[in-house]
């Protein structure tokens, strides 16, 4: 591990340490460092709030499947002290003994969660406006990036697609005009394409005058637009109408 382990709590709470050995070393450090352990507890309650801020109700079929599936899934018994973490659990936390009770933090997080859940049920105008504003700010952030690059192209069948991409922001802004109207069963889907192939990057909104932000943009990427089923595809099923690489 390079650098001071005390600074790793942030990356750990963000689940941003992909090196298993580095993770293990930090977990060992947690066992002996109460200040890092306490900090991490707060940090994980904080990052959970980021998840709640992005709340989006899954389709009801997911609920049906989950509730049907658990009837066939055996539950694990409680962990015995000092046992290695369960392989499938994928939750990396230090030994429970190191954790003081933090019910208050949980309370704050859960209170927020209820708000997020309610938002998921009734997406009111206020939330729509907030979302639009957030999107606008993200657009502005890409457009103002010092390394922003742009490209514009004519789409097969008519219309224009313009992009502004920033590697430092890791995002690309996509704006279109004059694309032909699609039947409701179809949608314009964006792709980020590099040597490894296309990655799905979202759908163009119905009101296509609104620019959208897609990511994660890498410097070697090109952007493609295809016509797909309304729900989007995992891989392109039609030829791209336009392919753009910013210069």
């Amino acid at each position: 591990m390079t650098g001071d382990p005390h600074t790793l709590a942030g990356a750990y709470a963000l689940d941003a340490i992909d090196d298993a050995e580095e993770r293990r070393l930090f977990e060992a450090h947690l066992d002996g460092c109460e200040s890092c352990a306490a900090e991490l507890r707060e940090f994980q309650a904080t990052t959970a709030r980021l998840a709640m801020a992005a709340a989006e109700a899954p389709p009801p079929r997911v609920r049906e499947r989950v509730l049907a599936d658990i009837r066939h899934v055996r539950q694990l018994p409680p962990a015995v002290p000092d046992e290695e973490p369960e392989r499938g659990a994928q939750v990396r936390t230090p030994r429970p003994k190191r954790w003081r009770r933090a019910a208050v933090a949980g309370l704050a997080a859960a209170a927020c969660l209820v708000t997020a859940a309610s938002v998921g049920v009734a997406v009111g105008e206020r939330q729509r406006a907030a979302r639009t504003e957030a999107a606008q700010r993200e657009v502005a952030s890409v457009l103002s990036a010092p390394d922003a690059r742009s490209a514009t192209g004519r789409a097969t069948g008519g219309g224009t697609v313009a992009i502004v991409a920033s590697a430092s922001r890791g995002r690309v802004v996509v704006a279109s005009s004059g694309l032909r109207t699609l039947p409701s069963s179809r949608a314009y889907q964006l792709w980020l394409i590099d040597a490894a192939g296309p990655r799905p990057a979202g759908l163009l909104p119905g009101d296509r005058d609104r620019p959208v932000v897609a990511g994660t943009w890498r410097p070697s990427d090109r952007l493609g637009v295809t016509v797909e089923p309304a729900g989007g595809s995992a891989r392109p099923t039609t030829a791209p109408l336009v392919l753009l690489s910013p210069a």
Binding site: R41, E86, A89, V91, G106, A110
Partner: peptide
């Protein structure tokens, strides 16, 4: 969600809240 069901007994309430625990599983 099935993982939450399967491993619920491994959750330690001293650890900082059920939502944080579940979101960690989700992110991973």
């Amino acid at each position: 969600m099935i993982e939450v069901w399967r491993t619920a007994a491994r959750y330690d309430p001293r650890r900082g809240g059920a939502p944080a625990w579940i979101m960690t599983i989700a992110h991973r």
